[in-house]
């Protein structure tokens, strides 16, 4: 059903810490690895070893440069996947009911057997979270690893999305935003978690933690007790270098 639930029992989603992400793309690889062989159709590649390779990914990492006026420039690595929006425009536009938002946990999923591959949901998503698989001709998107998080065949520590489990920097967090005491709710409250493209009114569940400002990136100049010993010793050079020094000094425009 493409009608959105007014409330979901749980509100599962991710917190992505832009301060911590090092841009290693490990989440991209683990996501592709898990999801190409589990939920639904595989994530195909086209011309993978050729001149124009492309493929279906559910998670991609962009990198941006910010140049604040009064602070040093900053590079921010920016992982982006489905934000499992509360007001998900991708769900309501779907003509077949293939797209839906689960009442029990708020995960937005595609029933691939009902997908006609019209692509309208991808057009409706501001975040580029949905990609049409060019081999299977159905819409693929992040499932929040719905086949891991409830999977009792996996050890308990593995029952979280593949991207979160794999992140070597600890920049990705998974939890229930409906629970004010959860790890994700706490992080959002403490670090000022923010929405992407809030003006689109999608009410994304996933939140991003802004990078901490780099205002004190340049420390106070240190006093070096060896400095006097390291001063240049040759105050009056002789020989060829001395001649060169004096000659260059005489040239205009120095």
């Amino acid at each position: 059903m493409t009608q959105l639930p007014a409330l979901t029992d749980k509100k599962l989603g991710l917190v992505i810490d832009l301060d911590t992400c090092v841009g290693c793309h490990a989440c991209v690889v683990s996501c592709k690895g898990w999801n190409t062989e589990n939920y639904g159709a595989p994530l195909s590649d086209q011309d993978a070893y050729g001149a124009d390779p492309s493929g279906t990914f559910l998670n991609r990492v962009h990198s941006y440069e910010i140049t604040p006026k009064d602070a040093p420039a900053q590079v921010v690595h920016f992982p982006k996947s489905c934000l499992h929006c509360e007001d998900a425009p991708c769900v309501t536009v779907c003509p077949t009911g293939a797209s839906y938002k689960r009442v029990e946990d708020g995960i937005v999923l595609v029933n691939e057997d009902a997908c006609i591959g019209c692509g309208l949901c991808a057009w409706a998503c501001p975040y580029g979270a949905r990609e049409m698989d060019q081999e299977e001709k159905v819409m693929k998107k992040c499932t929040l690893c719905v086949d891991r998080i409830y999977n009792e065949n996996l050890p308990e520590e593995d029952r979280q999305p593949a991207c979160v489990r794999t992140c070597p920097a600890g920049a990705r967090h998974f939890g229930d935003f409906n629970d004010p005491a959860s790890n994700v709710s706490t992080l959002v409250a403490e670090r000022g978690g923010m929405d992407l493209m809030a003006e689109q009114g999608t009410k994304p569940v996933n939140k991003y933690l802004p990078p901490r400002p780099k205002t004190d990136a340049q420390p106070e100049p240190e006093i070096d007790i060896l400095a006097p010993l390291l001063a240049p010793i040759a105050s009056d050079s002789k020989g060829f270098l001395g001649w060169l020094d004096r000659t260059l000094d005489k040239l205009p425009g120095a």
Binding site: L18, V28, D52, P53, S54, G55, T56, F57, R60, V61, H62, S63, Y64, E65, I66, T67, P68, K69, A71, Q74, V75, V76, F78, G119, A122, W123, P126, G128, E131, M132, Q134, M194, D195, L196, M197, A198, E199, Y208, P210, P211, P213
Partner: peptide, 26 residues
């Protein structure tokens, strides 16, 4: 607004991949 980062002017430093993808073509 797309990234939620408002501390200064921004530009794309590196794209997620060197090739194209469905989103870019469509």
């Amino acid at each position: 607004s797309a990234t939620g980062l408002d501390t200064g002017p921004m530009r794309l430093f590196e794209a997620p991949h060197t090739g194209s993808n469905y989103l870019m073509k469509e």
